[in-house]
């Protein structure tokens, strides 16, 4: 029983990170209608930027603020210089562009930070663990759970409760109508891409002390992010959050009893849900 509780806790912590990734990807896919294959690479860049910023400034918290902003700026540039020119070009070109971009970012990481993996320890304050009664748990994971949870809630509040969030959701529903209402749709796309990149970047930065860094780290995460988006329903933000948590917990609980299947279960859950609900958990189309 204690083991199961511990695993569920693990699943929620991991699931929160999956939700962050899925939320960002869902936002980009929903608003811009573009399959962003560079989302995993942005995740990796977030992690590497954190390590560099912490190396220079010597402060983890500053790194956690600066690194994702750096990734958001990178997202801004990517949208402005590349994605923007491909809105009319169809999915093939968008796919090729984002996929190529992912490869370029991956190689740039190798050029700048080297091919060998790096370990990055949590800040001194969050090292070690606490006894929760039923299990011993790392402090840093509890922090990640809280931080990712807060980010998910903040993003959701922004999208649901603010005027700009409403415009963004409207953009997902019907782009023509939004632009007919006199709203700068181009600006909306840029902001959505940058926000999606920010979420990928902060997920990467938060993950760095848990999983360490290696140039291929984004590839693993990209697959999971797409599963989360498909499972939650394309462009459905609440769905992405629920799907992220579902996959994280399913992975952890299965690992408690049948470790060999811990990777396969991600895809098994997706296949099972899509068989019953082809539009995803909360999707309508």
């Amino acid at each position: 029983m204690n083991l199961l509780l511990g695993q569920i806790l693990n699943g929620i912590a991991t699931g929160m990170l999956y939700a962050l990734m899925g939320l960002g990807l869902s936002l980009i896919t929903g608003v811009l209608n573009i399959p962003n294959f560079a989302h995993g690479a942005l995740f990796a860049v977030g992690a590497y930027l954190l390590v560099s910023v912490v190396g220079v400034l010597g402060n983890f918290w500053l790194g956690l603020i600066v690194a994702p902003i750096g990734v958001a700026l990178l997202g801004l540039v990517i949208e402005w210089a590349g994605v923007r020119r491909l809105y009319a070009a169809g999915h093939d070109y968008q796919l090729l562009f984002t996929f190529g971009l992912a490869l370029i970012l991956n190689e740039l990481i190798i050029v700048i930070w080297g091919p060998v993996g790096i370990s990055h320890l949590p800040p001194a304050l969050l090292r070690g663990g606490v006894d929760l009664g039923f299990t011993f748990y790392p402090k840093y994971r509890l922090f990640v759970m809280g931080m990712a949870g807060a980010l998910v809630v903040l993003t959701w509040l922004f999208l649901e409760k603010t005027k700009y969030g409403a415009i963004m959701r409207a953009g997902i529903e019907n782009k023509e109508m939004v632009s007919l209402l006199g709203i700068d749709i181009q600006m909306l796309f840029t902001v959505a891409f940058a926000l999606g990149a920010y979420l990928a970047g902060i997920a990467g930065a938060l993950t760095a002390p848990i999983r360490g860094l290696s140039p291929g780290m984004g590839v693993d995460m990209l697959g999971i992010a797409f599963v989360v988006v498909a499972l939650g329903g394309l462009g459905n933000l609440l769905g992405a959050i629920a799907a992220g948590l579902l996959i994280g917990v399913a992975q952890a609980v299965v690992a408690a009893y049948w470790t060999e299947a811990s990777t396969a279960v991600i895809f098994a859950v997706m296949a099972a849900v899509l068989l019953v609900r082809p539009q995803g958990l909360f999707g309508i189309r």
Binding site: L3, N10, M217, D220, Q251, T259, S262
Partner: peptide
């Protein structure tokens, strides 16, 4: 890459 589940076991 996700070893938390194994380590807890």
């Amino acid at each position: 890459r996700e070893f938390s589940n194994y380590v807890q076991k």
